[in-house]
Computed example of a mutant assay.
Amino acid sequence: MESCNRKACKAWLMGTLILFSSCATLVAGTIDCGIVTTLVSTCTNFITYGSPDPFPGSPCCDSILALDHMADSSTNNRQSVCRCLMSLISPYNPNSTAIATLPGLCGISLGFTIDPNTNCN
């Protein structure tokens, strides 16, 4: 099996994530929180330990970018992504600040603030 260079592998992964999330959105009509959880899980080290900081182009930021693309397709999708992220705040409560900082560290605006008091409607 031929190995791919890092840039090509990242591009393939990003495309696959976006395609997967788009298909899931079309089938379900709303975003599946399992997909959101899977994407955010690429940021587990940062969420749990506070380091290393994610940066644009890192796997963590690529996943946050995929969330942004999922959320951008409609108001319903943005609300679904918001609700899914809010549901992650509870299990990760001690690390909710880390989750909230992810979009900013990645240079991405999701269009809402990740905060326990955010109204996703």
Rank of each mutant, 00 (worst) to 15 (best):
M1A: 13
E2T: 04
N5Y: 07
R6D: 06
R6M: 03
K7I: 11
A8E: 13
C9H: 04
K10Y: 09
K10S: 14
A11F: 06
W12H: 05
L13P: 01
L13E: 12
I18E: 14
L19C: 09
L19S: 12
F20I: 02
S21Y: 00
S21E: 13
L26I: 03
V27R: 09
A28D: 04
G29A: 07
G29P: 04
T30P: 00
T30L: 08
T30Y: 13
C33E: 12
C33N: 10
G34L: 06
I35G: 01
V36K: 08
V36W: 05
T37F: 00
T38W: 07
T38N: 07
L39P: 06
L39V: 06
V40Q: 04
V40N: 03
S41C: 00
S41R: 09
C43Q: 01
T44N: 12
N45W: 00
F46Q: 02
F46L: 03
T48Y: 08
Y49P: 00
G50C: 09
G50Y: 07
G50F: 08
G50L: 10
S51E: 11
P54F: 04
P54Y: 03
F55D: 01
P56C: 07
P59Y: 03
I64W: 02
L65A: 11
A66E: 05
A66H: 02
A66K: 05
L67Q: 06
H69A: 13
M70W: 03
M70S: 15
A71Q: 08
D72P: 01
D72K: 15
D72R: 15
S74D: 11
N76D: 14
N77L: 08
N77E: 13
R78Q: 15
R78P: 00
C82R: 06
C82T: 04
C84Y: 01
C84D: 06
L85H: 02
S87Y: 05
S87M: 08
L88R: 12
I89T: 13
P91M: 06
P91F: 06
P91Q: 10
N93E: 13
P94L: 05
P94V: 09
P94H: 05
S96A: 14
S96E: 12
S96H: 08
S96L: 11
T97K: 12
A100Y: 02
A100S: 15
T101W: 03
L102A: 08
P103A: 11
P103G: 10
G104M: 10
C106S: 09
I108N: 08
S109L: 10
S109M: 07
F112V: 01
T113I: 11
T113N: 14
I114Y: 02
I114D: 01
N117M: 09
T118D: 07
T118V: 02
N119G: 00
C120H: 01
N121L: 09
